[in-house]
Simulated scan of single mutants.
Amino acid sequence: MFRRLWADDLSATIFLDGRPVLCRPGDSVAAALLAAGVERFRTTPVSGADRMPYCMIGNCFDCLMEIDGQADRQACLVTVAEGMQVCSQFGTGSFGTL
């Protein structure tokens, strides 16, 4: 669906659900995962439908993921860091426990 115009400098590695994903330093987590072909970032709390980024600017919350142990992070607003642990979020994450 998405592809990079240039595949240069894929020197950073993050881990999605334990699997390594090569990405470009400076990318947002959402951009890196979309470029790697990831099509599901989270599921909705009510129906369990798959969701992926929509706006890429932080206005919606379709890209919520668990990043480095913290649930409900907007992947489009978080910059890739070497070794970052990213997990798909199912349902409400920690937000639903407030």
Rank of each mutant, 00 (worst) to 15 (best):
50 D>W: 05
96 G>R: 07
75 A>F: 03
76 C>F: 07
44 T>E: 12
47 S>W: 04
85 Q>H: 11
97 T>F: 12
50 D>A: 15
79 T>L: 11
97 T>C: 03
57 I>K: 12
67 I>Q: 03
61 F>W: 06
97 T>S: 14
82 E>V: 05
97 T>Q: 14
56 M>F: 13
81 A>P: 00
71 A>G: 05
91 G>L: 08
48 G>R: 08
93 G>S: 06
70 Q>K: 14
64 L>A: 06
93 G>T: 07
76 C>R: 05
76 C>N: 05
50 D>G: 09
63 C>E: 04
86 V>D: 02
65 M>L: 14
83 G>R: 06
79 T>Y: 00
75 A>T: 11
66 E>H: 04
73 R>A: 01
77 L>A: 00
55 C>I: 06
82 E>W: 01
75 A>I: 01
61 F>R: 02
73 R>W: 01
79 T>W: 02
54 Y>N: 14
47 S>R: 13
72 D>F: 03
55 C>S: 03
50 D>Y: 08
91 G>C: 07
81 A>K: 15
64 L>C: 11
75 A>P: 04
44 T>S: 15
95 F>N: 08
72 D>Y: 07
76 C>Y: 04
54 Y>C: 02
76 C>G: 04
87 C>K: 14
55 C>D: 12
62 D>A: 13
60 C>N: 02
60 C>Q: 09
91 G>I: 08
83 G>F: 09
61 F>V: 06
58 G>R: 06
80 V>W: 01
87 C>W: 05
80 V>N: 00
45 P>A: 03
73 R>T: 00
83 G>C: 09
68 D>K: 09
73 R>H: 06
58 G>D: 08
85 Q>W: 00
52 M>Y: 11
84 M>P: 01
91 G>M: 11
70 Q>L: 13
69 G>S: 13
49 A>M: 13
71 A>D: 10
51 R>V: 01
64 L>M: 15
56 M>G: 01
84 M>T: 00
86 V>S: 07
83 G>S: 05
52 M>A: 14
68 D>C: 08
65 M>T: 06
64 L>Y: 11
94 S>C: 10
86 V>Y: 04
71 A>R: 11
73 R>G: 00
83 G>T: 08
86 V>G: 02
61 F>T: 10
97 T>G: 02
71 A>Y: 11
73 R>Q: 15
71 A>K: 06
57 I>Q: 12
63 C>V: 09
57 I>C: 09
78 V>G: 00
87 C>G: 01
89 Q>M: 12
80 V>L: 06
85 Q>D: 15
74 Q>I: 07
63 C>Y: 08
84 M>D: 03
70 Q>F: 01
44 T>V: 00
85 Q>M: 10
76 C>I: 06
